[in-house]
Amino acid sequence: MEQGTVKWFNAEKGFGFIERENGDDVFVHFSAIQGDGFKSLDEGQAVTFDVEEGQRGPQAANVQKA
Score class of each variant (00 low, 15 high):
F17K: 05
W8P: 00
R56H: 11
F49W: 02
F15R: 02
G4F: 00
M1W: 09
K65M: 12
V63K: 00
A32S: 10
V63P: 01
P58K: 11
I33V: 07
Q45D: 15
F30V: 07
N62P: 01
F30H: 09
I33Y: 03
E2P: 05
G54C: 05
F49G: 00
D42I: 15
Q55S: 14
V26Y: 04
E21G: 10
K65F: 12
A66H: 15
V63Q: 01
G37D: 06
A60F: 00
E2V: 13
D36V: 13
K13I: 09
F38D: 08
D24Y: 10
G37S: 08
I33L: 09
D42C: 07
Q3F: 12
G23C: 06
E53K: 13
V6W: 03
P58H: 08
T48V: 11
A32P: 01
V51Q: 04
K65P: 13
E19P: 01
F15Q: 04
D25K: 09
K7A: 05
E52N: 09
K39D: 05
D36P: 12
T5V: 15
F30Q: 06
L41E: 02
E2N: 13
G14Y: 02
V26R: 02
F30A: 07
V51K: 04
V6Q: 01
G57P: 05
G23M: 10
E12N: 13
Q59M: 09
G35D: 12
D50F: 14
A66E: 10
Q34C: 06
E53D: 12
A46I: 14
Q55P: 15
N62T: 05
D42F: 11
D50G: 09
D25L: 13
G35Q: 11
V26M: 08
I18V: 04
V63S: 01
Q64N: 10
G37P: 06
G4W: 02
E53Q: 15
P58N: 07
D36N: 10
V47W: 01
G35L: 08
T5Y: 11
D24A: 11
N62Y: 07
A61T: 14
G16N: 00
S31M: 08
A66M: 12
L41P: 02
D36A: 12
F49T: 01
T48Q: 09
E52S: 09
Q45I: 10
V51L: 11
N62W: 06
L41S: 03
E2Q: 15
K65H: 11
H29S: 04
S40P: 04
V47K: 00
R56Y: 15
E19M: 15
K7F: 03
N62H: 10
A32H: 06
K65L: 09
G35V: 08
D36L: 10
F30G: 04
F38Y: 12
G35W: 10
G14C: 03
G16Q: 00
V28T: 04
K39V: 07
Q45K: 04
Q59W: 10
R56P: 06
T48M: 11
A66K: 14
E12Y: 12
P58S: 09
T5G: 03
E52Q: 13
A46T: 15
G54R: 09
I33C: 04
Q55F: 14
P58F: 10
R56K: 09
S40A: 11
G44A: 05
G37Y: 07
T48D: 05
V28P: 00
E12T: 14
D42W: 10
E53F: 15
N62K: 08
W8S: 04
E43C: 06
G35F: 08
H29P: 03
R56M: 10
D42H: 14
N62C: 06
V6T: 06
A11K: 15
I18R: 00
T48W: 12
F38L: 09
N10L: 08
D36R: 10
Q34K: 12
E53T: 12
W8L: 03
A32D: 07
D24C: 08
S31P: 03
G44P: 02
R20A: 06
F49S: 00
A60M: 01
A11C: 06
F38N: 08
G37F: 07
M1T: 14
F15W: 14
Q55W: 14
G35P: 05
I33W: 04
T5S: 09
A11W: 12
F38M: 07
G57R: 06
T48R: 11
F9A: 02
R20K: 08
I18M: 02
A60H: 00
G4M: 01
E53I: 13
E21F: 11
V51D: 02
I33G: 02
N10P: 02
G54T: 13
D36T: 12
D42K: 13
G37N: 07
F27T: 02
G14R: 04
V6G: 01
K39G: 06
A60G: 04
E43I: 13
K13Y: 10
